[in-house]
Design a protein around this nucleic acid. Sequence first.
DNA 1: GCGGATCAC
DNA 2: TATGGTGATCCGC
Length: 674
Amino acid sequence: MADSLNVPPQSQATDSLLRRLAGPSTTKAGLATDQTDINRVIAEASKGSKFYENEKRKDKDLTKKIERILKQRDEARKGVDIAHVEHSVDQLVRSPRSCIESRYNLSHQLAKMEAQRDLSQIIVHVDMDAFYANVELLDNPRLKGTIFAVGHGVLTTASYEARKFGIRSGMPEYIAKKLYPDLVVLPCNFGRYSEMSKKVMDIFRRYDPNMCAASVDEGYLNITHYCEEHVLTAEECVQQMRQTVEMETRLTVSAGIAPNKMLAKICSDRNKPNGQFKLDFNPQAVKAFMQDLSIRKVPGIGRVNERLLESIGIRTCGDIYTHRAALSLMDKQFGLHYLLQTYLGIASNHVEPYHRDERKSIGAERTFSAISEKEKIFKKLEEVAAELEDDMENRGWTGKTVTLKYKLDTYKVYTRAKSFDRWISTKKEDLFAIGKELLLPELPLRIRLIGLRVTKLKDLREDADSKPGGIKRFFESTSASSSPRKKRKVDVHQDEGPRLSQDGYEEAMPGFHDEDEEELEDEDDIDYLEHPPGGKPISSASTFATPVASGSKMSSKPTSMSRLTAKRDFSTGPSRSTSPEKPSPSKHCTKPPSRAAEPGGEVQSQICPICSRTMEMDNTAFNAHIDFCLSKGAIMEAQVEASSSSNSRRSTSVRPSPRKHGPSKKLLRRGRGR
DNA sequence: GCGGATCAC
DNA sequence: TATGGTGATCCGC
């Protein structure tokens, strides 16, 4: 098949490098006409920088990878009857019954594809328009008409006027100013954004109390019930909802209405800003919609996967079907199942709020001007350790694995991890010590970023909440009425009603979260390495007493990268990440930032607007706390906690388990696993 | 379990 | 002069 070979690899690479430099949001948010010009300016401004060189390296690696894939594909095609392969795939997609004879043994999942298409739920994706920028506009109307952006160093948001000049989020400020020298750049004002976010989300929750806030400015709703109850069409409902938001907050929101989350998300982009788009709820319309849709619009397909797919001739979702034979032959690399689902426009339609126990990791990292001195590096490490301690302590987490991350001044990133068989101490000294141990064998280095992350988490707050509590537990003995605790996971077989879940494939997967057994063991495993409530933290020395595995082997190994993927969820659950940009240098700075002389004043009881906790402290400390809360992903979490109390309405135990529900875990062959 | 990578926001 | 931070997930070892 020569059709996919007609792309000169050379110019393709150049092109892709330009696109790479242009930033991730280029393709997603359909841009102006002279994007080529803009890309040229960006490339020129970048040229020669270490960042640029690193992008070039990545691009070259990708080109090599593509060459390998094409070779593999051609190899796989030899002696294969393409028509026969295509026919097999057709059966998989179209007639479930005949799948039984499939030589791919995918029948039991694939048979569900078209047959299980569920059009019964009205899913809405809501997306605030240029959220940060519009909040700024709200607070300062004089900005109207000016070309401005929010952030510093790197932009987090560009106003719509600024976008016309090619200015986008994620773009370094100095490049943005090359595109438009008079650009006004405002500092982030997270407190305001989160405040407004809460207001907006509260409005959304009137339409679906069970909605899922996917980030500060985005969410998914299931309005099926609301529409029935109020006898509204989906469009009327969403129209009304958007009007209400604008009326009550003066902020505009765009929305997509579709039978599942993936489609809804794509649709919300269709009439942005301040518009909505509804997809017809029938298989033909959905498939027609997908047919010419750029594969890049599919959530989870980024620049890399776009290029990989493009290399075998797939640019639109319709092309997936055209090239089904190649994809089938290279299922391992591309994930046929996921792509076919995408082609059909089938994905998850489950909407539920974020819950604490979905969290998998917690971490902190910091970028600075490159340094090589050991002492300075350790100092930075100490600072992130302190931040991480605060974060974990404040939010009630511990874990078993610590991962060190560092980025060389060449922008190459490395990680080194170490696991323990006990819950680690979250004291900064201990986190620091672990990080140091991981870092030491790597030195000397010249780095521009350092970070620590803890995984294999244990929720300490859950203990506090659902257990009778500390000591008492020992006295209560095991009467019949012992606390149910964790059993949340076990009950619940069905949501309300017979609704399908689209991702039956995924749901059918047993043991999706391996935490089950672990948590069960841990029930009685109260001997945290952590200081038990009231106890003392264990010293770093003893922390190191029982490592389970050691990371840090040898260092660099630029070698292999034999993988290629293309799938992944789109909205695999809420990401709490609130925003980029400098997490303010609040507390734990060794040197107090010049934060103007705040009297501080007397200690008093205050309630943090972000995490809702009551605290006894003076104003200075309180402000520092707020900075801290805002600087991390705390916003979403706080919102969720705040809302969960008010939303007991139609789902109290509607959570089968802390599971995601994206279109598919990821391709992957059938079964078992995970 | 570890390390490299991709992706979203 | 100069390109973020948090979190999730996947693949190949």
